[in-house]
Nucleic acid binder design. Structure first.
Lengths: 223, 223
DNA sequence: CTAGAGTTTTATCAAACAGTCAATATTTCG
DNA sequence: CGAAATATTGACTGTTTGATAAAACTCTAG
């Protein structure tokens, strides 16, 4: 019988192995070229199997992509899920930033996969963003608002705060080539991420205005 | 005679018009799908001309892409170019952030074009990054270091500071779909950018740690 | 007006591409 | 074992894609 996901069918050892290999190869290709830029041929080659054999497990290109997204989204949102109302605000936020940065370091392909998709208008996962991402962000934004009202962190738009954490951390995965060009070869990947962690801690905690200087520069008017 | 860029040939009115239309259409397609995902057919259709006619002006797909990049890079780096050692540090930085945010608002396609290219490993512009972007960043990082030594801004790695300005501002162009899903339809694009500007000002100037609270939370250990 | 430069179109090509099919090989399990 | 279920392959189809050639058309300078 053909491998069908509709019926509650037990998966073969070979099925499990091959789907794993396919999804890993697909992650490689989709994250590097986007949905349209990636080809089934290259995914099959990278997975070490013939194209028809790959299509035996996933009937269409889009099926591979959707399986990938479904498998990775939860993992990707885990750090935000873990943001806890009970903990102390600043350590809790720092912990979130640190986790996101670790994700960028350890799973750059996943980061680029999502970046590619969003960048290209999220045509295939927009619904997922509305049904999964939006409620989660709303929930966590509420926690942040609580902390702001209690005066435990500065009062800002919590959703923009989340955006800035996403963008600054994922930048090190998504724009890695550019980061490397600018930072040069000295200090390996590990060093770069340590430096990034140190910098982001300062930025998010204290910003750039020096603490000591009293007669500081005057505030500039709004946009 | 054929349109050739090698000789210093005066351009026809038609040439100027058509190249303009092609580059605009190409910006649309390349920024939305990346180099491999975009097709000459769609660019030609979007530019309102036949594919062979388009290929009369640009012989190969890559030529269109390179012409686009060349035309846009300077404009894209303009805000950083404008960062001036003479001005007061904090207003100068705020001005830079504001300009970058305005670019993200007014030229989102350009932002996405570069994002797509870097995301996919910058295979076509890596050299350009090394020869143009790197020296510029080095120069401006030196200015930032000067301000830090003078105690006019907090001491951080200036290159990571620049990364964070790039990522937070360009996020509003590159991840626009996601931003819209999370912020919802209320408040138009203009409102979103006002909010972003306000938030980023707070973040970069003061960070999240509240000023008044004395017995603040303890610092969390490094990564 | 007209010759030649410049522009556009029609027709075409080979390669790359997503996806199908029937035949063959392999694994699983009673 | 041996039959059914599962897995793999080669050959193939129709389409899309980047690119070319040559003929036909249009514009412009003299």
């Amino acid at each position: 019988m053909k491998a069908r996901a509709t019926e509650t069918q037990r998966k073969t050892r070979i099925q499990i192995e091959n789907e794993e290999r396919i999804l890993d190869a697909a992650l490689e290709e989709f994250s590097a070229h986007g949905f349209r830029g990636a080809t089934i041929d290259r995914i099959a080659e990278h997975a070490g199997m013939s194209k028809p054999n790959l299509l035996y497990y996933f009937r269409r290109k889009q099926d591979i992509y959707e399986a990938l997204i479904a498998r990775l989204l939860d993992k990707w949102l885990e750090p935000l899920q873990a943001l806890d109302a009970v903990g102390d605000p600043l350590p809790e936020l720092q912990s979130y930033i640190r986790r996101k940065l670790e994700m960028a370091r350890d799973f750059p392909r996943e980061s680029r996969l999502f970046a590619n998709e969003i960048l290209q208008g999220a045509p295939r996962i927009k619904r997922l963003l509305e049904s999964e991402l939006k409620p989660l962000v709303d929930e966590k934004a509420e926690i942040l608002r609580g902390w702001m009202k209690a005066g435990q962190i500065n009062t800002v738009d919590p959703r923009h705060l989340i955006f800035s954490i996403w963008s600054t951390t994922q930048h090190y995965a998504d724009f890695d080539v550019q980061v490397q060009v600018i930072l040069g070869p000295d200090r390996g990947a590990a060093g770069r991420f340590e430096d990034a962690a140190r910098y982001l801690e300062t930025l998010f905690l204290d910003g750039l205005r020096p603490k000591d200087k009293a007669g500081g520069t005057p505030r500039v008017r709004d946009l």
